[in-house]
């Protein structure tokens, strides 16, 4: 990995803050708790910012930024959803979603480095892939966690069905990331991307 400049470092750090805000966005904007099928699902913008981190920072810096986010939360700073923090989030059945942000940022970054110039349809594609990666890892982790250390026997399909409302919400939100990215793609300083041409 090439030398990381001060600008790249601060952009990476800012994305850690944005992830923290995105995870708890309903605190400031309560209207974002959206009723889906009778349950109020608080909208979290974590996937949104993880995808955006990949799109804006590229695969390497995006991955580094998400690692910093995860470690900051594990170190006890309440940056995860519902202002949670600490090592136990990884034992919880939703821990896989947090881990998946590393891969989400890397994959979306990798794709966006290959699919240049950036267009709206490419953005939609990348964002959808991001959400799929997020759920593939998150739901499998949930399934494994439930059936091993949490000791709850739950069928594979039930795990997926229980996550469907969230999945629909996240697809919507990811598409907004693509729209937003389209608007700001030319305003990002070129130097923040690592090793891209």
């Amino acid at each position: 990995m090439g030398k990381i400049s001060a600008l790249q470092l601060s952009y990476g750090a800012i994305f850690v803050c944005l992830m923290a805000i995105g995870a708890n966005i309903v605190i400031w904007f309560p209207f974002l708790a959206i009723p889906i099928g009778g349950v109020s699902v608080p909208l979290s913008l974590q996937t949104f910012f993880a995808i955006l981190a990949g799109l804006m920072l590229g695969k390497k810096l995006g991955l580094l930024s998400m690692t910093a986010y995860l470690l900051t939360g594990l170190a006890g700073v309440p940056v995860f959803a519902q202002m949670q923090a600490g090592l136990f989030v990884l034992f919880d059945y939703t821990g896989g979603f947090l881990l998946s942000f590393l891969v989400v940022a890397y994959v979306t970054g990798w794709l966006s480095e290959r699919l240049i110039p950036f267009t709206l349809s490419k953005g939609f594609f990348i964002a959808t892939v991001g959400v799929l990666v997020n759920y593939l890892i998150g739901v499998h982790y949930m399934f494994i966690a439930m059936n091993t250390w949490l000791g709850l026997t739950i069928s594979y399909s039930t795990t997926w069905i229980s996550m469907t409302p969230f999945f629909i919400k996240d697809i919507f939100v990811a598409l907004i990331a693509a729209v937003l990215m389209c608007k700001i793609v030319n305003r990002i300083p070129k130097q923040i991307r690592l090793n891209t041409h």
């Binding site: 470092l9 850690v16 923290a20 690692t67 986010y69 700073v77």
Partner: peptide, 16 residues
């Protein structure tokens, strides 16, 4: 860089 990124974000989370 990772550690520095974490320290910087500690500083900026409250601000943002």
């Amino acid at each position: 860089e990772l550690a520095l990124m974490m320290s910087i974000s500690l500083r900026f989370i409250p601000t943002l």
